[in-house]
C-alpha cells in the first residue's frame, strides 16, 4: 500500500515526536510524583542525545547498548546535583537543574568532540517507531506497577505530607533521589531516540524553553496517574500540527496552560487517579 507508506513518511517525525514527548512527560511525572520539581528534563534529554549520537558516530556499539549508555549518563549527572540539593527544600533542586541546562550548553559549545555550536550532523537514523512506543509502553507499565506498590504509597506520602512519610519510616531524600535518577534515565532515553530520528542535534536545542514545555505536558495531564502526563504530551504535540495558528502561539499557549492548570485545576485536565485496590486515597470521597 504505497499511499500508507506516504502517510507514514509524511508524518514520521510527528509520530516519533508523539512517543518521545510521551517519554519526556513521564520522566517529568516521576519527579513530580515524588514531590519535587526539576527544570532539568531538557538538559537530561540533551545529555542522552549527545551521548547516543557520539556513540553511534564513533563506535560500532549495537543500538541497545547505545540506548543504555544514553540513559546512564544523565543519571550520573542527576546524582551529582541531586545529592546536595535534595537535603534542602524543593526550590534548590529547581534552581540547580535550571543551571545544569545552562552549564551543559557551555560544555557542548566548547568541547571539540560535540561539534561546538554547529552540533552533530549525520547521526544514523537508528530509531524505529516501534522502539519508541515499546519503551513508552514499558515505562508506563513500570510506573503503574510502582504506583500500586509500597513505594508508590511512600511517594504519595512524601508528596503530600513529609511528617507522615517520616512516621512511615521513609527516607525522603533517598526516595526523591531515586525518583530523580529514574527520571533522568527516561529523559536520556527520549533524547537518544530523538537524536537518531532527527539526524542533527545542536547545543541550543535543550534550553529552558524545552524544559518548560516538558513541564507543561505533565501539568496539563495532571499527576494523578502516569497516563495523564502522556496524554498531555500527545495533546500538546499534536495540537499545533492540527491547528496551524496555534503554532505561532505555541510558547504562549504552553505558558498559559501551566498558569491556568496550577491555579484552577491542581489535579490536571485529565483528572484520573490511579486505581487503588482496597482503599481510596486520602481526601477523595467515594
Amino acid at each position: 500500500m504505497p499511499w500508507l507508506d506516504d502517510i507514514l513518511w509524511t508524518y514520521q517525525t510527528l509520530i516519533h515526536s508523539l512517543g518521545i514527548n510521551g517519554l519526556l512527560a513521564l520522566s517529568m511525572y516521576v519527579v513530580l510524583a515524588a514531590g519535587q520539581l526539576s527544570l532539568g528534563q531538557a538538559a537530561f534529554m540533551g545529555l542522552g542525545a549527545y551521548t547516543g549520537a557520539l556513540l553511534s558516530l564513533h563506535t560500532g556499539l549495537p543500538f541497545a547498548l547505545v540506548l543504555a549508555a544514553s540513559a546512564l549518563a544523565p543519571a550520573v549527572v542527576a546524582a551529582v546535583i541531586g545529592i546536595p540539593t535534595l537535603r534542602l527544600t524543593g526550590v534548590y533542586l529547581a534552581i540547580a537543574t535550571i543551571g545544569l541546562g545552562e552549564v551543559l550548553r557551555v560544555v557542548y559549545v566548547n568541547a571539540g568532540i560535540t561539534g561546538g555550536a554547529l552540533g552533530l550532523n549525520g547521526i544514523p537514523g537508528r530509531t524505529e517507531t516501534w522502539m519508541i512506543f515499546l519503551a513508552l509502553g514499558l515505562a508506563l507499565a513500570g510506573a503503574f506497577a510502582v504506583g500500586q506498590s509500597r513505594i508508590g504509597r511512600a511517594m504519595e506520602a512524601m508528596r503530600s505530607d513529609g511528617i507522615a512519610a517520616a512516621v512511615m519510616g521513609i527516607d525522603r531524600a533517598a526516595g526523591q533521589l531515586a525518583a530523580l535518577l529514574v527520571s533522568a534515565m527516561l529523559a536520556g532515553l527520549a533524547g537518544c531516540f530523538s537524536a537518531h530520528s532527527a539526524s542533527f542535534i545542536g547545543p541550543n536545542d535543550y534550553a529552558f524553553e524545552t524544559a518548560v514545555t516538558i513541564l507543561s505536558f505533565a501539568i496539563l495531564g495532571g499527576t494523578g496517574s502516569p497516563l495523564g502526563p502522556v496524554v498531555g504530551a500527545l495533546v500538546l504535540t499534536a495540537l499545533p500540527e492540527v491547528l496551524r495558528p496555534l503554532q505561532d502561539f505555541r510558547l504562549v499557549f504552553n505558558g498559559l496552560i501551566i498558569v491556568l492548570v496550577v491555579l484552577f485545576l491542581p489535579r490536571g485536565v485529565v483528572p484520573w487517579r490511579m486505581p487503588r485496590l482496597g482503599r481510596l486515597p486520602r481526601g477523595m470521597a467515594p
Partner: peptide, 10 residues
C-alpha cells in the same frame, strides 16, 4: 567570536 551560535562559529 560568538562560540555558541552556528552562524557566528562558522
Amino acid at each position: 567570536y560568538g562560540n555558541d551560535d552556528a552562524f557566528t562559529k562558522s
